[in-house]
Every structure is written in C-alpha cells, then in structure tokens.
Write a protein that binds this DNA or RNA. Structure first.
Length: 611
RNA sequence: GCGCUCGUAGCUCAACUGGAUAGAGCAUCUGCCUUCUAAGCAGGCGGUUGAAGGUUCGAGUCCUUCCGGGCGCGCCA
C-alpha cells in the first residue's frame, strides 16, 4: 500500500525545536516582505506592513529598535489595527511602556493613514484608519493585487501521486493546498515552478512488471492496473521467488533494458493521462509540463553518491552507504542515518530527493522550495535538508521548507476509507460531490435550466470539497464530512459563491455594467466602513499565505468579506438608492465581487453568475 | 522503549505566531420575506482552552510533569 509523497509514511524523530513548528524551515534566512512606506500610491498595498514601518521608524526616533507587531485589533472598538510591540520594546529599554507609547505617538508620522492613534491598557497602540485612506485603496480602476518588488523563484513540489495506482483521497490535500499556494505566489509576481514529483520508479514498478509478465494480461485500463497492483503486492509479500523477480525487474528497468522500459512507459502514460484528467476536473493548475518524475533523476543518482563520498559524508554500515549527521544523534548514543544507497546498490527515496534539491538549486536557480507532503514525512525532509546543506547541494540562499499537512479522517474519526475499508478513489469522491450538489441545486433553484444546474452543481460540489480542505489549518487532521461541507452555511464554498452570485444578480437586476463603474468606493455608513476595512486587506492576506503556506487564513478572510458584504447588503439598499449614493454602493458591490472572485480563484474555486 | 504531533462550546473549526473580555458555523431557542436571491440577516443559550505546576506586566500559545488520541522510529516511497 505504498504511495508517493502525498500519503506515504516515513520516519520521524527529532532533535531540535524547529520541527515542532508547523512550517519547517531548515535554517536559511526567512523571507522578508517588501518595503515601501508611502501611503499615497493608488491601489492595493499591504497596510499592515505600511503601519509597521511607520511605527518602527517612530520607535527608532525614540531610541529603540524593535518590531511594531501590528495586527488586526482584537475588538472593533479598539480601532482597525493594534501595535503590541511597544510593551516588549519598553521592557528591553527598561522604560515605562505607557510613557514610551506616548512618545512613539509623538514621533509617529501617520496622519495620512490614521485618524487616531491612542495608547491603551499597558501600552497598546490602537489605530483607526481614515475614511479617505480606505477609499484611496478601493479604486475600481486599480489592480487588486500588488506585485512583489523583489520577485523570487519558488519551486512548489506538490500532488506527487504514485503512478502505479489510481489517484485517491490521499492525494487531495497536497494537490489542493499546494495548488492554492502556487497560485498565490504567482499572483504576487513570483516565478513559480511547479514540480509534480510523481512516483514512477522503484520496487513497486518492478513488482507490477514482474506480475504483468507472469500473468500475461494486457489490458490498458487503469482499473486493471489497480487490480494488478493489489495482486502483485500480495504475491510480493508472500512469494520469495516473485520478490526476487521483481527486484531483478527493477535492475533491468534502471539499466534501460528495452522490453522492460517499453512496458513501463505504457504504465506511466496511462496513469499520467488519468491524473491529468483529474487535475482538470479538480481545477488544479498542474499540467503535463509540470511533471518531473522520480525517474528523471535516475542518471543523477550516482553523482549524488559521488559528491557525498568526495566530502567524506558517506559511511558504510551493514553494507549500506549512509550519512550520519551529529544532529541526528539519539539519546542512546546512536545516530539515525540517512541511507543513500542500499547494500544491493539500489538508490532510495532520499537519494532522489537529494538529486532533486541539487537540480532545483542549480538548474532551476530557486530561492525557495516548498514541499507539500504528509506530516509523517517530517523527519525524512528534516534529514534530507540537513544532508543537502552539509553536502553543499543547497546554499544559504536557498530556503527548503516542508509544508506538512495532517490526515483526512472519516466522520468516525478514523482514516477516511470506503465502507469496505478500501481507499476512496478521487473520481468517486468528485462524482459524489457533484451528485450531492446537484440535489441541492434542484431543490434551491429549480428554475435554472438543466445545463446551468449542472454547471452550478459542478462549481458548488467540487468547490465544497476543495474549500472544506482549504478552510482548515493544514497541519491538523480533519474530518471529511459531506453534510458539513454541503450544509451551505457558515464558512463553506456555497456561502461564498452565493454572496458572489447575489452581487451579479444585483447588476443584472439594475441593468448595471460593473465594468463601467469607475472611481473609488467611499465609506460613510458603518456597514460600508466595515466592508471597506475587509476589502483593503486582501494584499496583506496574500502576502501572509505566500510566506507561511497556510491558505486557510485566506479562506477565513473571504468568509469575513462575504459576511461583511451581506450585512452591508441587508443594511444599505443599493439599487433603491439614488445618485451618488447608489453609484457608491454599486462600487462597493463591484469591489467585493472582484475581491471574492480573485480570492476564490486563487484558492482554485470557480464562481458562477447565478445559483 | 525513544521521538514527533494533537487535545479549545454537545459537534466541526478559528484565534494573525506571547497581548486587552477565547471567536465563528452547526445543533437548540427567539425575531425578520407584497422591498436588490431567506443557500440570507438580527439576537439568545452554550468555555476552569485535557490536568497540575512554572516563566512573564500578560499564557489557548512558551517550559516541566502527568493523562488521553494520532503518527514515526537504517536498507519501502
């Protein structure tokens, strides 16, 4: 039952705290956001960062260098943002926190942004933004998203199914989350290189080919390959002769024996086509050009061993060639090795990953490599990253970041399986999503014609599955519950899609062409002000996700946006308003629609004009 | 045995990485459709953040111990 990265288990052990962090940096310098402290530029910007820069400058004027720690105010009555850094700064400077806070405000140059900055409690700074500042950022003619001033090259390693089998739910999280992060990085102007490190090499393929040769079956259907895999696995575990034949087949394959290669290529082609169809159905932005299979590194593996050897990192242990690094010393004194080459001469998963790092560092010139895999592989990556550093495969300019995620559980809290205990195939999962969504669409809006119902069911069904995953913290295990995700209430795809559809309906009803709405949305009512403050934060949310790889914070943001819009929609009549007020409210509606569409799009969800 | 990880309302999840009175949805109870889609809105109920200590001006978040769940521990990926 082995699969590639997406759900393959491996070791875990740890020796320092870094591993307990949700995102595993391996020690290179963290990414910093862009600078820029001018507030009068048209269009979007990271307001949080702007405020931080201003406050830090003021702190500096007071003789203290410290982070401003700006965040969203914990309660609306405190204002829009709060800065918590003054108290910590006062501590290191041995100053009175409230006094320092007052002094910081005296030195603070933020009149163009904030209408009020006040000291509160033990030394919080509470900041309320000016309506004019908000309006300046709500320009319908400006792009929604700012590009990074220092774009990076980011390799995103995700999805990575095992081609010996059909894609199943175990591949879902990596594909969905990795894809969202890749899109967001791209939207921010970074050069994203998607790498679908598919498993197309190794023992399991030897097994398949050996069984294929024995059995004489020759069907091309993937369903059959699935069955072959199961049978081959049974024989592999039970028959020593078959096991030997499988291993011999791997050797033949790796040596490039033509017959074995041809059959292998046939397996791969069928399986890749199947994956591609699923990516398209899922709305994942992966294509054939993003496939960089394990086998592609085959020729580079001896070079990896050589390089390790040259640097004196290799030690022979029980016939295998291993790297023993002191940071992996256990309590009992032994060191957990990274095995680079087995005693029979074959290479392993770790060897391939080392080769991949070399390739990404050198040929791809990456600044960051993000790995979206099951959290059970945390120790594997910890080790691989450490060895890559030690061997100089990754220089200090390259950030290697494991973005782990938890398991998908069934409603009973146990691993998500079919009733019979088998893995749930992705095709079946998506079929069910659409069927369930279709039932609801028919019930909620029977007036739509059949074609549109199908379209809505697809957007809602697939969207619900993806959003259920994207709205939860990736590091925790999560319960896959149809009723929950299709309840269509709360923080779900349907709620967000509905908010968007309502806005489109508004434009249709009012005969308004949203594209023709220019200018800025100017808040005056409370509901407008609340909405404006959400709208203005898209940029900072995207930058946050680009840095930490947690798309659920973007989901929470979009949910907040949808609720604030709906409140505005209830409180402020739009089409019934007149003159400037009507135009202004239409601008709010349009800016909300743009933001929802962009945000959902970055999460990989498709909007529909009505539902 | 060693290690990683998680434990927040009856349920599913948040809490911007140490900040102010721990927030949402579901469920339950109460209102709101001849007025822009009620797949909606407004409100009520619901918490010793697994337990006990500790650090700190300040702890769901950091440290220690314990309890409980998941996972991983050299030639599989």
């Amino acid at each position: 039952m082995k699969t590639k990265r997406a759900c393959a288990p491996k070791t875990s052990r740890r020796f320092d705290k870094a591993l307990s962090q949700a995102t595993l940096f391996d020690g290179a310098t963290p990414i910093q956001g862009e600078g820029g402290t001018s507030s009068n530029r048209i269009g979007p910007m990271n307001v949080k960062r702007l405020l931080s820069a201003r406050i830090e400058a003021a702190l500096k004027d007071c003789g203290v260098e410290a982070p401003a720690l700006v965040k969203i105010a914990s309660r609306p009555e405190y204002g829009h943002y709060q800065a918590d850094g003054v108290m910590a700064a006062a501590k290191t400077a041995k100053a009175n926190p409230r006094q320092l806070a007052t002094e910081v405000i005296d030195h603070l140059d933020a009149a163009d942004i904030a209408e009020a900055v006040a000291v509160a409690g033990p030394g919080f700074l509470n900041i309320r933004l000016r309506d004019q500042f908000l309006a300046g950022k709500l320009n319908l003619e400006a792009p929604l998203i700012d590009k990074a001033t220092h774009p990076q090259t980011v390799v995103v390693d995700y999805s990575c199914p095992n081609l010996a089998k059909e894609m199943h739910v175990g591949h879902l999280r990596s594909t969905i989350i990795g894809d969202a992060v890749a899109r967001i990085l791209e939207a921010l102007g970074h050069q994203v290189i998607r790498q679908n490190h598919v498993g197309d090499w190794g023992t399991q393929f030897g097994m398949l080919l050996a069984h294929f040769d024995d059995g004489g079956a020759d069907s091309d259907s993937l369903g059959d390959l699935e069955a072959y895999y199961r049978m081959a696995k049974v024989r592999f575990d039970a028959e020593p002769d078959f096991q030997a034949a499988s291993r011999a087949m791997v050797v033949a394959l790796q040596a490039g024996e033509t017959g074995a290669r041809a059959r292998w290529r046939r397996f791969i082609r069928i399986s890749l086509d199947h994956c591609q169809a699923l990516y398209e159905r899922l709305g994942a932005s992966l294509g054939p050009g993003d496939v960089m299979a394990e086998s592609a590194y085959n020729d580079a593996l001896p070079g990896v061993i050589e390089a390790l050897e040259r640097q004196g990192l290799l030690t022979e242990s029980d016939g295998a060639r291993c790297v023993f690094l002191p940071q992996f010393r256990r309590k009992d004194g032994g060191i957990t090795p990274l095995i680079a080459q087995k005693s029979d001469g074959a290479y392993l998963y770790a060897t391939t990953d080392l080769a991949a790092i070399r390739h990404r560092a050198q040929a791809l010139a990456a600044d960051r490599v993000l790995y979206f895999t099951d959290s059970r592989q945390a120790f594997h990556f910890k080790q691989v990253f450490a060895v890559a550093r030690q061997a100089g495969f990754a220089g200090t300019g390259l950030n290697l970041e494991h973005m782990p995620f938890g398991a998908m559980l069934g409603k009973d809290g146990k691993p998500f399986k079919t009733r019979e205990g088998g893995v749930i195939k992705l095709t079946a999962l998506l079929d069910e999503a659409e069927v369930r969504a279709m039932r609801l669409v028919r019930e909620k809006n029977p007036r739509l014609d059949a074609e549109e119902q199908a379209k809505v069911a697809r957007a809602v069904g697939i969207g619900a599955v993806k959003y259920a995953d994207l709205s939860k913290n990736r590091t925790s295990d999560y319960l896959f519950d149809w009723e929950q995700m299709l309840a269509f209430e709360g923080n779900t795809a349907p709620y967000l899609l509905y908010a968007y559809a309502r806005i489109q309906s508004l434009f249709r009803r009012g005969g308004v062409d949203p594209e023709s709405l220019g200018g800025k949305a100017q808040p005056s009512a409370d509901a407008e002000r609340d909405l404006a403050f959400v709208l203005v934060r898209l940029q900072e949310m995207l930058e946050q996700v680009a840095e930490d790889g947690y798309p659920h914070s973007l989901s929470a943001y979009l949910y907040d946006l949808a609720t604030k819009f709906t409140r505005f929609y209830e409180q402020c009549p739009i089409l019934a308003a007149e003159g400037g007020e009507r135009a202004n409210r239409l601008r709010f509606a349009q800016q909300t629609a743009r933001t929802l569409e962009a945000g959902l799009g970055l999460l990989g969800l498709e909007t529909v004009p009505r539902m």
